[in-house]
Amino acid sequence: MAPLSAQTDALSENHFVAGKLDDVADLLDKQNASLFRVRAYRDAASYLRGLSHPVRLDYERGGKRGLDELPTIGQSIAATIAEIFDTGRSSLLDRLRGAADPEKVLQTVPMIGPALAHQIHDQLGIETLEALEAAAHDGRLANIKGFGPRRVEGLRHSLSDMLARRRPRHVSADQQRPPVAEILAVDQIYRSTLDQLPTIKPRRFNPSGETQLPILHTERDGWQFTALFSNSPAAHRFGKNRDWVVIYFERTDQPEGQVTVVTEQKGTLEGKRVIRGQEVACKSHYATQQTGQQTYDET
């Protein structure tokens, strides 16, 4: 049995993590997120404070599944706790505070230093390890200079190992992302209600220190969404920081994912809102919409 002092120190980590979850709940509450989502983080924090053993043991023994099986801890909150244990920080909390630094997140991956992290974030707008993994599989990462087939494959393996303990137990391919129509609907809601939304004060690209970035939290069909304008170097360089919308999504049985919605500048979708990396699906979505409208007009 561990010495009493060691047990006390380990249990104090429960309170540290609980404090982070309470901080998430407070910010979600201030930013008008659903009461269900706010309460979920508060309940999880309360549970950790009352736990009689170090919650880190559950993570070390069973990974994210070990956390997810605890009362009040769903998969999305388990992923937040896992990230705190792995990195000492929470990207969700940083984002809600306006203090996110995606490039530091990317640098936690072997083979990715400051310059490459900047390039990936700048060119692809990637802000999470899950989004980086998706880009490694869908071909976008191969478009970054210096990423040949071997390097991409090596990165896939590294990310697979890093994220293995955070993954849900049973996720089929069609559960990976919300439907295109739902994502585009969230994008539309965000852009049409900007003057009604709470704002945060981003630390990056904000020399005046203004509270200027609108943020939306909403729930649709069991998915929790957070939407805000991109604050990436590329968005500012190309004057798209009020066009590109980054949308994060999660649900209780699914870790967080991320997409970016932009206004297409060329081709058959020119002028329409499209999801980067899902242009084909967006084209099908708009074609279905048009067919439905034609049928309605004919009747």
Rank of each mutant, 00 (worst) to 15 (best):
D22V: 11
E13L: 13
D68N: 14
D297I: 15
G74F: 03
G154Q: 11
E69N: 12
P214M: 00
R42Q: 03
S158R: 09
Q254L: 10
Q224V: 09
L51H: 06
L124G: 05
R39G: 15
Q31H: 04
E298P: 05
I112Y: 03
L67K: 00
A44M: 01
L213R: 08
Q290T: 09
N241C: 07
E256S: 14
S160Q: 14
V245T: 07
G267W: 07
V274F: 04
N14L: 03
V280K: 15
H285R: 03
A99N: 15
T263H: 07
S158P: 08
A78M: 07
R151Q: 05
A40N: 01
P114D: 06
E83L: 07
R237F: 09
R237M: 10
N241A: 13
S52F: 15
V245K: 03
G88V: 05
K283Y: 14
L213S: 09
G63V: 00
W223Q: 05
A18I: 07
S172N: 08
L35R: 15
I275H: 02
A227N: 02
W244A: 11
K30I: 09
Q293N: 08
L163V: 04
K283V: 14
T252S: 13
R191W: 13
V152P: 02
D101F: 11
T128P: 04
S34G: 02
R237P: 00
L216M: 02
A142N: 06
E256H: 03
D122E: 14
Q119V: 11
F249S: 09
F16E: 12
Q175G: 11
A181K: 03
R276T: 09
D23Q: 15
D161R: 11
D86A: 10
K272R: 15
T199Q: 13
T288R: 06
A18S: 05
V274R: 00
Y248E: 09
T199F: 08
R97F: 02
P233G: 02
A2H: 15
H285D: 06
A287G: 05
S12N: 07
A181H: 09
H170W: 04
G62Q: 04
H157V: 15
S230I: 01
A45H: 01
L194R: 01
E264W: 04
D94S: 08
P110T: 04
D253H: 08
D43C: 12
A281G: 05
G125H: 05
V38W: 03
D122C: 12
E250A: 12
L51N: 04
D43W: 10
V259H: 02
P179F: 07
R89M: 10
V171R: 13
A173Q: 10
Q123P: 05
H118F: 15
D29S: 11
D22I: 07
M1P: 14
